[in-house]
Design a protein around this nucleic acid. Structure first.
Lengths: 213, 213
DNA sequence: CAACTTAAAACGAACGTTCCTTCTTGACAA
DNA sequence: TTGTCAAGAAGGAACGTTCGTTTTAAGTTG
């Protein structure tokens, strides 16, 4: 096989990445051997090492892809106009996240949430990945903070709390729910949306310093 | 050294566990070699293998400890009487979680949140740990569900949403914030408490089927 | 035929673990 | 109180295995 088409090269690369993602979702990055990946991809070592310089590059490629998908989901949700209320915003980013690579399953459950958790676990080890994640996180935080500011300026949300704190809280809700999916299997997005909606109906303590009756 | 006191044996065991926890928080379970642990514990292989049958047992011991601490934090928060409102409930469990093993730091930041994420990443690989986690999660979910029911019955929260959904949402918020700490370093608990408090001030969509003005 | 992909065997390094030795300790006899 | 001894904890080199990777040869296509 010589001078194959670019499409073929791309397909091979994707085939390897998909096989690796499956193995990684099953066993984690470092408990997965290259030979596991080779077997899953039904390819030989020579073939795989033509596309990736080694295991670390394979891990980095998948982590980047996963983090990129998550960030894209957050960004897309933030671009909705007009900005939906918090419960819908959170639900839409979660739905979009869980829709990525839906066909890639391990034991019948989606592999993607597990890959997200695996990616998190890899961050402390890799400064470059950490920088990418940090950049994406900061950007999402800022975008969501602006949306929260909108809530507050339009009077839909009390204004005595830093928008950034609310943004971080909403992000925590989404990522926490992704973790739940990774650990306990899939669940409808409605759970988080409704749960948030219920919380939104609870009367909170008044702002500190406010006049008491 | 022969027939040393039980206290000494316990101290050695803890010394090994602490060293391993530090290494694991730094590099993850499987990228940490036994020799890394030996060096960190300042002990020889013979010593460590007298207390643990192997690396897997070391990992299992630490994961169990970490999950146990997290579960204890959730349980303690749920035992508060009378049950605090959601923002305070969430803040108290988070505070309690982050207070565990506070002195165990890597690069100056607490190791515990990282260990939590590492534990999550290990779950798909180990059915026994998964069962332990599942049991703890279900129990916390049920306990928090009962609290939410209390909110609803006392009229502090709209009652048209399943208590379990709210419980899962609050758990997601806490775990998501733990993940943030693991990835981006420590942050005050107040962020999550205030963020939740702000969300609680947002008027939500009325229940489906409710009469429209 | 030329160019290049794939297969497969094999390599060195690093891993987890074991094994044997050395050293320490507490118990006990004198 | 002191000296001796057995028990067993710790040390550390060495083992076999497995890993990621490289190399070499065969195969395939334009």
């Amino acid at each position: 096989m010589a001078r194959v088409s670019q499409a073929h090269l791309d397909a091979r690369r994707r085939q390897i990445l998909d096989a690796a993602a499956l193995c990684f979702a099953r066993n984690g990055f470092h408990a997965t051997s290259m030979q596991d990946v080779l077997k899953e991809a039904d390819l030989s070592a020579g073939a795989v090492y033509r596309y990736f310089s080694g295991k670390e590059e394979l891990i980095a490629a998948i982590v980047s892809e996963v983090l990129g998908e998550v960030r894209a989901a957050f960004d897309e949700a933030a671009r909705q106009s007009p900005p939906p209320p918090p419960d819908l915003l959170v639900a839409s980013v979660l739905g979009r996240t869980l829709a990525t690579r839906e066909s890639l399953t391990v034991d019948g459950v989606p592999a993607f949430p597990r890959l997200v958790v695996q990616a998190w676990s890899e961050i402390p080890r890799n400064a470059q990945l950490a920088a990418v994640l940090r950049e994406g996180y900061d950007s999402v935080r800022a975008a969501w903070g602006r949306i929260v500011e909108g809530y507050q300026k339009s009077g839909r949300m009390r204004a005595d709390i830093a928008p950034d704190h609310v943004a971080r809280t909403m992000i925590a809700a989404v990522t926490g729910f992704i973790a739940q999916q990774a650990l306990f299997g899939p669940a409808p997005v409605d759970i988080l949306r409704d749960g948030l909606r219920a919380l939104m109906s609870v009367p909170a303590e008044p702002p500190a310093g406010s006049q008491l009756g």
